[in-house]
Every structure is written in structure tokens, then in C-alpha cells.
């Protein structure tokens, strides 16, 4: 399971960021705007062969079935995981902990997904979710062809 972001629905409201920060102390999701034209939320992808776990020399980050587990006691704060993550989704906070999305283990659905006003964030299995995203994309493209995606 992982968090998917549909950039066509994101409205740059920052609800996910504020909610994540409220629950975790620091926000582990961020939302970036590009040229005032579009934006996309960025969070850990829970990679299958996670670069952060692969490079971790102390075994603090370790690949498990569908996620990466973190053991704070083993962490040496070396920061290799930060360099390795292609999304910049791993960070070190000022105290000692690695900050990385843990999908809110106490909850069925992470707070960022619950709070998202536009359902731009989706928790799901990647095959199911990509199918849904393809369906939406196809619908949009079909509509655009029908009416013309024109702007004044």
C-alpha cells in the first residue's frame, strides 16, 4: 500500500502538510507548485526495492514486505538515505529521528489522505490505483476531444 497523488486534483491547499505535521511533529509530505500553474504532493512511495533501505549501512532502515521499517536505535544519522531517495521524501529532524512516511500505522488510512479536500491523495494498491487513474485520465482525454480543451 502506498499514497498516490493525482496532480490534476491537487489545489495546493497544504491540508496534508499541516495534518501530517500535527500528527508527526514534522511534515513528511510536501506539496510543490510549478510556475503558478500546477502542483503536486510528494511523499514516500514505499518502494519495493527502496533505495533508502539499500544504502542504509546500519540496518536502521530495512525492507519489509510492502514497506520500509525504521529502527531508531540503530540509526547513526549518517544521512545516506536522504541522498539515495529520488523523491527527497526522507529527512532528518533536529532531534535524531529519520522522518519518512510510515503510513500512520495506528490508523487504517493515513491523515493526509483523510484530510485531503479534493481526494487528490489516495491510499491503495498500486495496480488498482493506477487502473483507476488511467480510467480517469481516459475519461478526461475523451471529454477534451469531445468539447475541446480551450482557454480564452
Amino acid at each position: 500500500m502506498e499514497i498516490y497523488a493525482d496532480s490534476d486534483r491537487c489545489i495546493l491547499c497544504h491540508a496534508c502538510v499541516v495534518a501530517c505535521e500535527r500528527v508527526h511533529g514534522e511534515a513528511r509530505i510536501s506539496v510543490e507548485a510549478v510556475r503558478d500553474r500546477a502542483c503536486v504532493p510528494v511523499a514516500c512511495h514505499q518502494c519495493d526495492a527502496a533505495p533508502c533501505a539499500i544504502v542504509c549501512p546500519s540496518g536502521a532502515l530495512a525492507q519489509e514486505a510492502s514497506t520500509v521499517a525504521f529502527d531508531a536505535e540503530k540509526c547513526t544519522r549518517c544521512g545516506l538515505c536522504i541522498i539515495a531517495c529520488p523523491l527527497g521524501a526522507v529527512d532528518l529532524d533536529t532531534v535524531s529521528m529519520i522522518q519518512r512516511c510510515d503510513l500512520c500505522p495506528d490508523r487504517e488510512v493515513p491523515v493526509c489522505v483523510l484530510t485531503c479536500p479534493t481526494e487528490a491523495l489516495i491510499l491503495g494498491d498500486r495496480f488498482e490505483e493506477t487502473k483507476e487513474m488511467r480510467r480517469r485520465a481516459a475519461l478526461r482525454i475523451a471529454q477534451s476531444h469531445a468539447v475541446g480543451r480551450e482557454r480564452a
Binding site: 491547499c13 491540508a15 483523510l114
Partner: peptide, 11 residues
């Protein structure tokens, strides 16, 4: 709102 809240609601 079906549970969802904007940043101000969260704060």
C-alpha cells in the same frame, strides 16, 4: 466534508 478538512480546519 466527509471527514476532509482544509489546512485551517487542521490548525
Amino acid at each position: 466534508n466527509e471527514g476532509a478538512l482544509c489546512p485551517k480546519g487542521n490548525a
